[in-house]
């Protein structure tokens, strides 16, 4: 299907803007780091959280055990979002698709950077094939999750749950645009770059998009590739810079809040499990205790 040395040419068609890209990326990262610093310094200017006074019925050593609870909470409630699962499968699966799709795509971008910029060049042959396959499906997951979230928010949600503002819609559109231009970029690249023709037969959404670009010929596809590259890259860099100034910052703050809640509850209950409220009715209605 392809040789062991098969790989993608990074910056295909936009080599002339390589320095511009790195400079832009640096600026975006600097803005993000500055934004995070602003937030963290604001948090640090808050008062220390008051200690929870332990009563005689409290058990356990509190501090040590509570951090164990935080670790559990982080894995179960942040990475797997079990609290959301308990509230409803649809919301949970859409969140998982978006979150893990985004994380995998982010990890893929880091892997590409390590392979290209650090001279390791490990994305060749089968590794590259698997890499593309995983990233393609992560991209599909992201798009499906975003569409699903939009349907839930703007079609399925009950009137009293519709508290979404302009920023909520903007974030959905921004993420979706980044994912969509990613596939368009991939497809245009396949059609424009002669040595990527084998990729057109791969079982990926990018390959399907690429086959749509083939008809216009390599030159036109190349022009589209450059245009889409700029749109995709600068949307992504804008998103990176915008994270600390938007509701997306909950990706950092929510795990901290969830961890603090786990610790607070663990201390005040002496280690009792933290049940998660299910959606709607709570079990127990009509249950009679022993008399």
């Amino acid at each position: 299907m392809f040789s062991a040395s098969y790989h993608r040419v990074v910056f295909f068609g936009v080599q002339w803007w390589t320095a511009g890209f790195y400079l832009s990326a640096l600026v975006a990262l600097a803005i993000m780091v500055w934004g995070i610093w602003l937030k963290v310094s604001l948090w640090q200017s808050g008062d220390a959280d008051p200690a929870v006074i332990r009563g005689p019925l409290d058990q356990g050593s509190g501090w040590t055990l509570s951090w164990r609870a935080v670790a559990w909470f982080f894995s179960a409630d942040c990475l797997l979002a079990l609290r959301v699962l308990r509230r409803g499968f649809y919301r949970w699966i859409m969140l998982m698709l978006v979150m893990w799709g985004f994380l995998i795509l982010f990890a893929g971008s880091l892997a590409l950077m390590v392979s290209h910029d650090f001279g390791t060049h490990f994305l060749h042959g089968v590794v590259y094939y698997d890499f593309k396959l995983i990233l393609n499906w992560a991209g599909v997951a992201l798009l499906v999750g975003l569409l699903g979230q939009a349907v839930r928010r703007y079609i399925m949600a009950k009137p009293q749950e519709k508290v979404y503002n302009g920023e909520d819609a903007f974030m959905l559109i921004l993420f979706f645009a980044i994912g969509l231009t990613g596939f368009l970029l991939q497809g245009a690249g396949m059609a424009a770059e002669a040595n990527r023709v084998p990729e057109l037969s791969w079982p990926t959404l990018g390959a399907w998009v690429g086959r749509q670009f083939v008809a216009m010929g390599p030159a036109a596809a190349g022009s589209w590739h450059v245009a889409i590259w700029f749109v995709h890259v600068y949307l992504a860099l804008f998103m990176i810079a915008y994270i600390p100034f938007s509701k997306m910052f909950h990706m950092y703050a929510a795990p901290l809040a969830a961890g603090a809640a786990a610790r607070r509850r663990f201390i005040r209950t002496g280690g009792a499990a933290a049940p998660v409220p299910p959606a709607g009715a709570v079990a127990g209605s009509g249950r009679a205790l022993k008399s």
Binding site: A48, Y164, K247, A257, A260
Partner: peptide, 24 residues
């Protein structure tokens, strides 16, 4: 506005995702 709020309070402001699950 931030003075007198605890660190948890301030983190909470950024943690809210406006999911609306509390409203019902």
């Amino acid at each position: 506005l931030w003075e007198g709020l605890t660190r948890s309070d301030l983190i909470s402001l950024d943690a809210c995702t406006r999911c609306g699950q509390c409203i019902p």
